[in-house]
Design a protein around this nucleic acid. Structure first.
Lengths: 342, 342
DNA sequence: CGAGCCTGTTGGATCGATCCAGACTTCGAT
DNA sequence: ATCGAAGTCTGGATCGATCCAACAGGCTCG
C-alpha cells in the first residue's frame, strides 16, 4: 500500500480507497463530493476506508478535470520605503483566514514595477487560479479593465473610480470620507476649532475622498478650512514638511491626516519642536497601522474593517462562479480608534 | 480557435499549437522544455505559433503528470496583538520576489491555533505544494520533526534548536547573538557604560542567544552586567514595566532590547517620564520593523537580511529536489541601522 | 553499399479525479 | 406476476501535458 517514490511516500489515490472499501472509484468520488447519493452503510464503509488511508483528493487531477483550482491570486505590490503603510499585510492575514474557511487558498505573485499586468497574464493563461483579488485600484483602473477584457473573474478591493455606478465587476470598499469625518468630529468634540488637513495629491482619488470627509465635517460645524489644508506625497518627510508650514502659517491645534504615514510626519515635527502630541497638539491618522498602535503616546487612527472586507470579497468571489447577476458594490464603514495623540 | 465556455475563453492547448505549427504535440512540448532537441527552423516555427496563440502550459495538467506543482507552502501565523513585530510580512515580500525568479509561487495557508500541523497535513496529502518553508521554529520544533517523519520536503528559516549540529533538513538563520553584540558595541562606542538588557523569557532559545551577544560584548569591555538584565514577555506593556524597574533600580543610560516591541516599551516609559530618547537615554531594538523606522526620533535597530535569507532558502529548496546530500545550515550576519534613538 | 548512429519526430499510454451513460437493485402500484 | 420509477452503483472516456518506445531520414565509416 505504501509505495515509495524517491524519498516521498506516494499518497493514496481514489482507486486505493475504492479497492479497500470494495466499491468502484466513482462511488468513492461521490462519497467525497455528493455524499447524499450513497446509501448510508456504503457511505460509512467508504468513509472508514478514506480515514484509514488518510486519503485526500489529488489537487492537480481534480483541478484538471473540473477546471477549477480553488486558488485565488493576489498581487503583492513592491514595498515602498519611507512609509508606515503596511495595510496590504493586514489584508493578507485577513484574507488568508477567511478564504481558508471558504475552501480557498491564496496564491501570491510579485508586482513587477514595469508591467503591472504580466503576473496576472501568466497565471491566467496557465489556468493557475480561479480568480483574482485586485487591490491596487488606486493607481487608476488599468488592471481592472485589462482583466475585464480578458474575461477573467475578479473582485476588487477598492471602488472602480472611473465608473463608480455602473461597475462591471463586484467590489468592496471602505467609506473613507466617513472615516475622515469621524476623526474630524472626534477632534471637534474635544474642543478643537482650527483643525488642519494633510492629504495626498489631487490625482489620488481616494485622497480627495478622504479630504471631503474632513471638509464636510468642518462645514457642518461652521469651522474654517481656508489655509488649513495641504496636499503632499505620502511620505513621512513630506508630512513633516507640511506640518511645519501649517504650524507656522495657520496655527492649527489639531491635524487630521489621510494616512498614518503623514500622521507620523506630524509626530516627527512635533517631536523636533518639543511639542507633546495629545496635549499641545492633537493628531489623527488613517489605517490603524502597527506604527499607529505602537508609537508613543499612541496614534488615534481610523481603522478599516479589513476582516469584514476580506469576508465580503470572498463571498463576492463565490457569487462569480454562479449565474451572472449585476455586479454589486459594497461600502463598509470604518471605525475610529482613539489613542493618546488626541 | 477561440472556444468559449461560459464567460471564459478556454486557453489554447498544446494540441492547438501543434496543429498551427504543423508538428506533433511532443515537438511542442520539447520546444517548451528541451528546446535544444529541436532543429533551429522547427523551433522558430513552434515558438511563433506559441506566441501567436499566447500559449502557456496548463498548470494542473503539467502538475499531474510531473508530480510537481512549483508551489511552495508558507504558513501565516496568527497575528499577535500588542506587538510591533511584523517580521513575517517583510519576509513574505522578500520570499515572493525571490521565489518568482526561481519559477515558484507562494501558497499561503492559515496557522490555526489548535493544531499547528493541520494545514501542512492537508496540503501534503493533496500534493498541492512541492515543499514548505517553515518559519516558526521558535516554538520548539514540533512541526519540523512531524514534517521529517512524513518525509515532506522542507527548509527552515530558523535553526533547529533541538539539534543544531546534526540537522536533518537545510536551514537558514540570522546570527542574532552577533546582532545584539553589534548594538551593544555601538552604544559602548557612544560612551555608555551602564547598558541594560531587556529580553525574552528563558524558554525562548532565540532570546537567550541574543542575550549572550549583549553579555559577551559587555564582558569584552569589562563592563558590568549584574542587575542590568531582565527577561519578560514580548509585549510593549511588559517592556515598559521592565524599563521602569531598571531605571529605578539600576540607573542605566542605555537599553539593548531583544525586539522592537520591547524597545517601543522603553520609548513609552521614557515618553511618560519626559526623558528624550537618544539624548537622555539611548535605546536599540531588533528587527528593523516599520515601527522602528517611523517612530520619532527613529529607533536604532538590528536589521535581519531577510532578502538574503529568502534567496538562500529558495536555493536550498532547489537543492532538495536533487540528490540527497547532507543538509546544510547557513548563518547570515545582521546589520545595525543607527537612528535618532542612540 | 549496407550497418550503425544520430537527429527530429510520431502515436499511444499515463498521471488521478470527475463526467457520462448505462446497468442493476429495490419497491410500491397495477 | 409485471411494470415503471426511484435509488445505487459501475466501466469507460476525458481533462492537458509529459513519458515512452519506436521509427523515418541523413550521415559517417568500414
Amino acid at each position: 500500500m505504501s509505495r515509495v517514490i524517491g524519498r516521498l511516500a506516494a499518497p493514496p489515490t481514489l482507486a486505493d480507497v475504492a479497492e479497500l472499501a470494495g466499491v468502484s472509484r466513482q462511488t468513492v468520488s461521490n462519497a467525497v463530493n455528493n455524499p447524499d447519493l450513497l446509501r448510508e452503510d456504503t457511505l460509512a464503509r467508504v468513509q472508514a476506508a478514506i480515514e484509514e488511508l488518510g486519503y485526500q483528493p489529488n489537487r492537480a487531477a481534480r483541478s484538471l478535470r473540473t477546471r477549477s483550482s480553488r486558488l485565488i491570486g493576489l498581487r503583492i505590490p513592491p514595498v515602498q520605503e519611507g512609509t508606515a503603510n503596511a495595510l496590504i499585510d493586514r489584508f493578507v492575514h485577513a484574507l488568508v483566514d477567511t478564504s481558508a474557511d471558504a475552501g480557498y487558498h491564496i496564491l501570491l505573485f510579485p508586482g513587477e514595477a514595469g508591467d503591472p499586468v504580466a503576473g496576472y497574464d501568466e497565471l491566467l493563461r496557465s489556468t493557475a487560479v480561479d480568480a483574482f483579488i485586485v487591490t491596487d485600484t488606486l493607481q487608476g483602473d488599468s488592471v481592472s479593465s485589462w482583466l475585464r477584457s480578458r474575461r477573467a473573474p475578479f473582485v476588487a478591493f477598492g471602488r472602480p473610480w472611473e465608473n463608480p455606478e455602473g461597475a462591471t465587476h463586484p467590489w468592496v470598499d471602505i467609506d473613507s470620507a466617513a472615516g475622515a469625518a469621524l476623526a474630524t468630529e472626534h477632534l471637534i468634540e474635544k474642543g478643537h476649532t482650527r483643525i488642519a488637513w494633510i492629504g495626498w495629491r489631487r490625482e489620488h482619488l481616494v485622497g480627495e475622498e478622504r479630504r471631503s470627509g474632513w471638509s464636510r465635517a468642518m462645514h457642518a460645524h461652521s469651522l474654517p478650512t481656508t489655509g488649513l489644508a495641504s496636499r503632499v506625497e505620502d511620505t513621512i518627510a513630506s508630512g513633516r514638511a507640511a506640518t511645519a508650514a501649517l504650524l507656522n502659517e495657520a496655527a492649527p491645534t489639531a491635524f487630521v491626516c489621510a494616512s498614518d504615514t503623514l500622521a507620523l510626519g506630524v509626530l516627527h515635527e512635533l517631536h523636533a519642536r518639543g511639542l507633546r502630541p495629545g496635549e499641545d497638539i492633537a493628531v489623527t491618522g488613517f489605517d490603524d497601522s502597527i506604527a499607529a498602535q505602537t508609537v508613543p503616546p499612541g496614534l488615534t487612527s481610523v481603522r478599516q474593517p479589513l476582516e469584514d472586507a476580506a469576508a465580503e470579497l470572498v463571498k463576492a468571489l463565490e457569487g462569480l462562479q454562479g449565474p451572472v447577476g449585476s455586479p454589486e458594490g459594497i461600502l463598509l464603514q470604518p471605525t475610529l480608534v482613539a489613542r493618546g495623540s488626541s
